[in-house]
Simulated scan of single mutants.
Amino acid sequence: MAARAMHVLTSRVGEHNAVILSQEALSNLVGCSERRLRDAVKLLAAENWIEIRRIGGRGTVNAYVINDRVAWAGARDGRRYSLFSATVIAVDDEQPDANELGQQAPLRQLPTMYPGEGQLPSGEGLDPPSQPSLGGLETDLPARRISPPAGSPFDDEK
């Protein structure tokens, strides 16, 4: 059962180093009871094939980490945190709004900053192009006023 569980996890990890899903969903994918699944993943963890990180308080949803241990940041406000990337598997019958899935209104879009741009886009319409400048529309760069030497052709004091 442990080998089957490992196969299911590695086939779904994608470009990340972890898969997050419920024990029920994983047991369905593996084709065993939740009790047998818990024994299988405990064995995989004991043999250092995976690291299991609980997501939430009840322990029924876990991150199954493969190949690399999760890095933990130093304590902040008395708690330590870990930030990592994972493939998340959500099962429709575990959702409280299962009968509405696929029929929801689209989410609102947050404005984003593109690399190299100094302000967030705003207003209606398309996002601004994400290139440093367009011909004839070069950005105005802030400049420091440097006084030219007295009597120079650039002297405004004339």
Rank of each mutant, 00 (worst) to 15 (best):
Q23A: 01
E24G: 09
E24R: 13
L26I: 02
L26M: 07
S27F: 05
S27H: 07
V30K: 02
G31K: 01
C32L: 10
C32N: 09
R35L: 11
R36I: 10
L37M: 13
L37P: 04
D39M: 06
A40S: 12
K42F: 11
L44S: 01
L44P: 02
E47S: 15
N48Y: 14
E51V: 07
E51A: 13
I52R: 05
I52W: 04
R54N: 11
I55T: 13
G57N: 08
V61S: 04
A63G: 13
Y64H: 09
Y64M: 14
V65W: 04
V65S: 03
I66L: 15
I66E: 02
D68P: 02
V70R: 05
W72L: 13
W72R: 03
A73P: 00
A73Y: 03
A73D: 01
A73G: 05
G74K: 07
A75L: 04
A75N: 05
R76L: 15
G78H: 01
R80N: 09
S82W: 02
S82G: 08
L83Q: 03
F84D: 00
F84K: 00
S85Y: 06
T87Y: 00
V88G: 04
I89V: 13
A90K: 09
D92G: 06
D93G: 04
P96K: 12
D97I: 04
N99A: 14
N99S: 08
E100R: 09
E100S: 07
Q103D: 07
Q103F: 13
Q103T: 08
Q103Y: 01
A105C: 07
R108G: 14
Q109E: 14
Q109D: 12
L110Y: 07
L110S: 13
T112S: 12
M113F: 03
G118V: 07
P121A: 08
G125D: 04
P129G: 02
P129M: 12
Q131H: 04
